[in-house]
Amino acid sequence: MQSTKTISELTDEIGAMLEALPDWEERFGAIMAMGKELAPYPEEFRREDFIVKGCQSQVWLYPQLADGRIHFSADSDALIVKGLVALVVRIMQDRTPQEILAAPKDIAERLGLVQHLSQNRSSGLASMLKQIRLYAVAFSMRTSS
């Protein structure tokens, strides 16, 4: 469900929550807990077309447009990455394509994950954010035509 907060507010809120934890073990614990709350991924979309490229583990991201808003389903075979994709989905869930396209470009940095994760290409965080943006571009063309 879409948060009542903006993408920017939610990003800063989650960033502050992660920052407040004492170390990376705790942060990974919190991130993995978010992964566990993710809705089950629809098996019919566990296909090559929905794999996010550029991640060391497998990440699936399936977008659906309903009432002008994008609803994402996501999954990963690795726990920390599943948590990361859940975190990104929580921020971006049920937004309009325009909201996503207008979102700040420094989400990874503001989540405080830069040092540990977003510069590590294997985590795929940058690829997930880019993929969400690409889906938003595609859907914005569909909704405007």
Binding site: W24, E25, R27, S57, L79, I80, V81, S123
Partner: peptide, 13 residues
């Protein structure tokens, strides 16, 4: 256990 999870956890230490 996924190798990537283990690698990230070890790095945390």
């Amino acid at each position: 256990v996924h190798s990537q999870d283990l690698g990230l956890m070890l790095d945390a230490h």
